[in-house]
Design a binder for these strands. Sequence first.
DNA 1: CAGAATCCACGTAGATACTG
DNA 2: CAGTATCTACGTGGATTCTG
Lengths: 111, 111
Amino acid sequence: MGFTVEMTPAIAEKLVTLNELHRNRWRPDIVNLLLETDTLRFGELKKQLGITQKVLTENLKWLEENQIVIRTVYPEVPPRVEYSLTEIGKELRDVHEAMRIWADYYVTHAK
Amino acid sequence: MGFTVEMTPAIAEKLVTLNELHRNRWRPDIVNLLLETDTLRFGELKKQLGITQKVLTENLKWLEENQIVIRTVYPEVPPRVEYSLTEIGKELRDVHEAMRIWADYYVTHAK
DNA sequence: CAGAATCCACGTAGATACTG
DNA sequence: CAGTATCTACGTGGATTCTG
């Protein structure tokens, strides 16, 4: 990298959002899984993550409210609800990639 | 970006380290401050962050153990202890930069 | 199937007092 | 100055039960 993004109050606010995302136990895992799999039903997310229904619901709701995840309800019985990333959510790939690069640097430079 | 770093067990382990860093309330703030200021005494960190002694000590110890921060003790009375980032710690700048870029994208694309 | 509601367990932060 | 040692408070996750 090497360049710098200017810091405005609006950007600072979204950095807070990003902090709230990463401070959570499951939110990064949910995003990672959706980055890999694109679209998943509630039950699939639950099974693949090994997470509780309550906690999964709470965090999906938070991710939706913060425009990172899209929730699509199909009017069927039994109900079918699918989750996928918004464009903003998909942009998190670069953040995760930066993290992997850092981890790689760590491995090659740690004493 | 666009390229991908291969994922090894060692890299995965350091991603866990990075997660533990970001899940904490103060660790990212400590790193950010040291990225800006390079070297700071214990008391300066405490004052500028508005953090408790106990919590600051705990987290500096964790950061030191994980080779992100270097602790330098000067044999003086009263004691003087300075903290700065290791090379690994300084590499976190790219992660924070990726976060700022994401936040900027968010601001310009949110509905 | 996809939740909502309740109760409990645990980790981490805050406040305070003490010290080489 | 730069810590250590306690005790308390609170947020978040886990387990369980119930439902349209």
